[in-house]
Each structure stands twice: as structure tokens, then as C-alpha cells.
Simulated assay, not measured.
Amino acid sequence: MALALKLIKPEARKLSTRKHSKKIFSLYLLLAPAIVLLLVFNYIPMYGIVIAFQDYSVFKGIAGSTWVGFKHIGYFLHDDTFWKVMRNTLIINFYDILFGFTAPIIFALLANEIHSRSFKRVMQTISYLPHFLSWIVVSGIIYEMLSPQHGMVNDMLGMMFGTKPVFFMTEQHFYRGITVAADIWKSVGWSAILYFATIAGIDQSMYEAAMIDGASRWKQTLYITLPMMVPMITLLLLLKISSIFTANFDRFFLLENPLVYDVGDVISTYTYRIGLEQAQYSLTTAIGFVQSLLGFILLISANKLSKKLIGLGLY
């Protein structure tokens, strides 16, 4: 009998292993397209980073171009224009974090206080809609609203205060605020989706216990809702910090003009001009390489700091 059990057990184990392998294989098949896209569009193009260390020529190609080492990296590190666009990128990203990152959190908390489910759903749906508009459409709307000729904002200011028309898009002290406000309007609803899901997953018995203890809605938000949102806030904040050296190209390319370059020209638009318009491919690749390296270092540092301070991180 014992001998029979010994003979059956290995067969049963093999059968269960085969079933398990089939299940895993089907999951791998589902994952395969994403892996292929990641390899084709993210990892294979990384080979082109060698252009940063060459005087790249389109006609000679990567294999035939001359190697120059850190020449291009040294060039832009000593270029005043680069440091100007770096400053603009950091300042605008700081505003995006200060106002743009906190706006979806506040929006989700306020929406959570709406008792009518139907009204809440309609409001959330309306808030998502700007996300599906391209920046071309959004920039057109902004230019029309702020136009000095029959623009809604100038007309309202003229009626209320009697002010003369102002072309806001050419005024440097208005430009950064306009771009940040435009990004908040376009993305606040979509960015709040994860916070809505987090709030929906909070155990309602915690609120019931707080109500029995006499906690107001403000205290329930402060001591229950916000602490339960901290992991999601931390995750998204770390991802936002990692991209602080980058900027949405579409937003700035469509909203900026030469009159606001001093305050609105960012790394992505700067590299576009010198890369595609002036065909300095090696220089722009070097800038992109340093930009990615700084973002990686910033992400690792922010993650370690987050784990040390609050015990949460990306990994």
C-alpha cells in the first residue's frame, strides 16, 4: 500500500504541475503584447543613446560617425541657454506639483462629500471630458478665451473694471500661471480617478465608528480618508517627482511663443528647436541622456527618503 502511494504521488504532482504551467502560460500570452511593445519602443531605441557621444551624421549613420566622448555634454553644461530652460522646467514643474498634483486630491475629497450619487456621477463624468481633448483643441480654446479681441476674459474685465484689452499669452508674468491652470483644467478629473477608487475602498465601518464617537465630517476626512489615501498619494508623488526634469511637450509647444521664451521655454521645446530645426542630433541626445539620468537619480533618492520618513515607497 505504501509503495502504491509512493508511485501515485509523483504522477499526481506532475499532473498538478502541468495544469499550473498551462495557467501560467495563458497569463504569459496575455502579457506578451505589452512586453513586445515595451521592448520595441522603450528598450531597443536605447541603442541610439550612443549618438550623444558622437558627431552624428545622418549620411554616415551610427556605425560611421566620429566618436567625440563627452564633448556635447560639456557643451550644454556650459551653455547659458540650457540653464535658462532648465530653470524654467524646474519652476513650472514645481508649480505643477504644488497646484496640479494637489488639485485632484482636493477634488476627490470634495466630491466624496456629495451625498447625491446621480449628481456625483454626472460631475465626475464632466470632469473627465477635458482629458480626451487634445492639446491642440485646448490651446485653441485658451487663445480664444484670452484674446484681446472679443476674448471672454478681456470682455469681462472691461465690463467689470473698465480695463484695456490685454494679450495674456504674450505677457511673461501671466504665462506660467496660464499653462499650469490649463493643465489642471485638462487633467484634474482624470487624475482623480485613482483617488476616487481609493476612497471607495475604505471600510465604511470606520466612518460609522467615527460618527458614533461624535467626529465631524472634517475630522473623518482628516483622520480616516486622508490617511487611507497616503499610499496612493505617495506612489503618484514619487512618479511625479521622477519626471520633474521633463515637461509636457505638447502643452508648451502649442502655448508658447518667442515673446515668452524667457519664462516658458522648457527642455523639451528647446531640444525640439535645436534638434529638428537645427539638426543637432548629438547635442539633443546628450541633453536627453542627462535629463533621464537626473530623473532616475531623483526617483531613487525620493523613494529612499519616502521609505525613511513614512515607510512607503515604490519598491
Results as ranks from 00 to 15, higher is better:
123 M>L: 14
129 L>R: 13
173 H>S: 14
141 I>K: 08
152 M>S: 15
145 M>N: 09
125 T>H: 11
183 D>K: 12
127 S>D: 02
126 I>P: 05
155 D>H: 11
169 M>Y: 04
177 G>M: 10
135 W>F: 12
145 M>W: 06
120 K>T: 08
139 S>D: 02
180 V>K: 03
165 P>M: 01
169 M>C: 10
140 G>M: 08
130 P>E: 07
176 R>P: 04
146 L>W: 05
170 T>A: 11
121 R>T: 08
130 P>H: 06
134 S>L: 12
142 I>S: 01
150 H>Q: 13
172 Q>D: 07
129 L>V: 15
140 G>H: 12
133 L>Q: 09
149 Q>I: 11
141 I>F: 05
121 R>C: 03
161 F>G: 03
167 F>W: 11
118 S>M: 11
157 L>Q: 06
137 V>Y: 08
160 M>S: 10
125 T>L: 13
125 T>A: 13
180 V>Q: 01
131 H>I: 01
148 P>I: 04
120 K>R: 12
166 V>C: 02
125 T>C: 08
139 S>A: 15
147 S>T: 09
139 S>W: 03
124 Q>V: 00
154 N>P: 08
117 R>Q: 11
144 E>I: 13
171 E>N: 14
171 E>V: 15
116 S>K: 12
160 M>W: 12
171 E>W: 04
129 L>K: 13
171 E>A: 13
188 V>W: 07
170 T>E: 11
136 I>W: 10
164 K>L: 00
173 H>K: 13
168 F>Q: 03
112 N>G: 00
153 V>K: 05
158 G>M: 10
128 Y>A: 00
128 Y>H: 08
164 K>Q: 14
184 I>N: 04
185 W>S: 03
135 W>I: 09
180 V>A: 01
167 F>E: 10
155 D>F: 05
163 T>C: 00
174 F>G: 02
130 P>D: 09
172 Q>R: 15
149 Q>D: 15
142 I>R: 02
164 K>E: 11
181 A>N: 06
161 F>C: 04
183 D>H: 12
188 V>P: 03
167 F>Q: 05
119 F>H: 10
149 Q>G: 06
168 F>M: 04
170 T>M: 12
